[in-house]
Simulated scan of single mutants.
Amino acid sequence: MALSPTAAQRRVIDAADPVSGRLKGTEAQLAALVKRGLAFRHPRPPHDHFLTPAGHRIREAPAEPETPVPAGPAAPAEPAAGGVFAARVGGEEAVPGGAGPARPREVRSAWQGLLELRRMTHSDGATDRPCGWERKHLVQAAALALEAAGHRPAGPDGGDGYRVRATPQPEAVAVYEPDGTALRGCAVTLERAGWHVGEHTEPRTRARYLLASPRKV
């Protein structure tokens, strides 16, 4: 069973790459996380450290408030960390990190991190099909594949652009795009990213949409 991290170790976990779980820290910090079952050292060079599933659960759980320690003068406050990267699912008002000039670089970095996570977690090192993280974060994973391929998400007021939404079906998301050509383009992108994709019509509105699920083999 993984041991709970100290406050300092929790900060290292919280700073891990949001997609791949790659960790940065001193050798002592990383070794301590490995000992607690919260990280592992990749066997291939450059032997980076990554969160284990237990480490990912720790990061996704809200941090417990630290007990204040009465002492002398208060230390200067540390600068707040930047927002965690999130792929644009379409229709949201705001996205952590914004949509400024740095956004394409952040999206590319997140996609490359996801491909590395696939390579690490698949026994055959394959990167052409989704990994366990994607199956647990279906909407985010599908949206990242679309955004990384250059598709435009819908704005908060709707209009053209993709929207990725959860469905009642296990391991399936719905992708909406009012432009038929763009919808077919989304299908091609998801298929290339390792998803099974089918086009459907809503009975009531007659709107076309994609139903996508991560491919297993």
Rank of each mutant, 00 (worst) to 15 (best):
E78G: 00
T26M: 10
A172D: 12
A207E: 15
V139D: 05
I13F: 01
A99R: 09
G158W: 10
G97K: 14
Y162K: 01
A102T: 14
P43F: 14
R192L: 12
R206G: 10
I58L: 10
V173G: 10
K136Q: 11
P153S: 00
A15D: 05
G198N: 08
L146S: 03
R105M: 15
V84Y: 12
A16H: 04
A193D: 02
Y162M: 01
R204A: 15
Q9M: 04
L38E: 07
P104R: 06
R59S: 03
A71G: 09
E191C: 07
K24R: 05
R44I: 13
G91K: 00
F85M: 13
T6K: 08
R204W: 15
L183C: 02
A74V: 05
P79R: 11
A15G: 09
T189G: 02
L51S: 06
G72A: 10
A145N: 04
W133K: 08
G198P: 05
A16T: 04
R165Q: 08
A174H: 07
P45G: 00
A212Y: 06
A15P: 04
G161C: 05
P62I: 07
A154T: 04
A77H: 12
S109H: 15
C186G: 05
R163Y: 08
R118A: 03
A81N: 13
R192A: 13
L115K: 06
I58N: 03
P168R: 12
R192N: 11
E60P: 02
G98A: 06
R204D: 15
S109V: 14
V197D: 01
Q29S: 11
P45N: 05
V12D: 01
G97S: 14
P214K: 11
S213K: 06
